[in-house]
Design a protein around this nucleic acid. Structure first.
Lengths: 149, 149
DNA sequence: TATTATAGTGTATAAAAATTCACGATACGA
DNA sequence: TCGTATCGTGAATTTTTATACACTATAATA
């Protein structure tokens, strides 16, 4: 699925570049081998919940923000960050390795977020298994996890 | 200064309304007695660092986000929230009342944020005195403090 | 299989947001 | 008090972003 790959790349680009506008994104994605128009990028940005904001240098930049609106008490995020050590993908499964005993709370956060693409999660002691909708979605979900660390 | 008042009102509006676009803001501000054009609102939004983002209902909405980009370890924010009990203004001074012993860390956060309009801060045991640039700026700074709680 | 959804996209356009330019008000020095 | 600089603003415009519409491909259903 080209779409998921593009969106993963898009997140990556946004974190590593100072993207001022969508047309820049079109260009950067093209460099990376993804052909998409501004219209598509606009839709991706909406779906991924990305935002454009003024930086201190007075330039605009697209960025990723975690907790927006009433999303979730950010303490849970703190917890998540402390707990999760590694994020890996295998086929349609994302595996989180956590500090022993914290897998459950990490999973709890995931559940409360109702992240798109996730079918379900199971938490052991130091491992969370996340089942995603498809092989294509898995890297996107993983990227989302990493972006929370 | 009409500008500061407008911006304070603007923040207030944004937190209490689902503002989808700047022209809505123009209208709402007009109701509140502030006449400003879209151009001015656009500038205010840039200055205040507000953002437009897609909500879960797929509508766009302007919101305030605290920690953007590499802004500050969000733990400091947690601390700030726990510490600060009240925010008051008098002339060009904003006074924070905190839990005893925490005023210093609250002030530390403020310093690290380099918030515009603040000349300097002094922290006692349970009180932070914030000196702002002008009487007009003080309510804006206070609003910023409150928005972090 | 034929038929009907559904998702993803580009093109063209509408809509929204940012900025350029000009101007008025205020502050500051000479 | 001038002249000069700075700031905030609106009008008009440019730039950027979102979406309506049409089309294709793929999946789901009878």
């Amino acid at each position: 699925m080209a779409r998921s790959n593009r969106q993963v790349k898009l997140l990556e680009i946004i974190k590593t570049h100072e993207v001022e506008r969508q047309s820049d994104l079109v260009a950067l994605l093209k460099e990376a081998g993804f052909d998409a128009t501004q219209a598509t990028i606009s839709r991706d940005i909406k779906e991924l919940g990305l935002i454009k904001t003024a930086m201190h240098n007075k330039k605009y930049r697209y960025i990723v923000v975690e907790s927006k609106e009433g999303d979730v008490p950010s303490k849970l995020f703190e917890l998540f960050k402390e707990a999760v050590k590694k994020v890996n993908v295998s086929l349609n499964i994302v595996v989180l390795n956590t500090i022993p005993g914290t897998a459950n709370s990490a999973a709890a956060l995931l559940d409360s977020l109702s992240i798109s693409g996730i079918l379900g999660t199971v938490a052991g002691d130091d491992t969370v298994i996340i089942v995603t909708e498809s092989i294509e979605k898995a890297p996107l979900v993983a990227e989302r996890m990493r972006s929370m660390l």
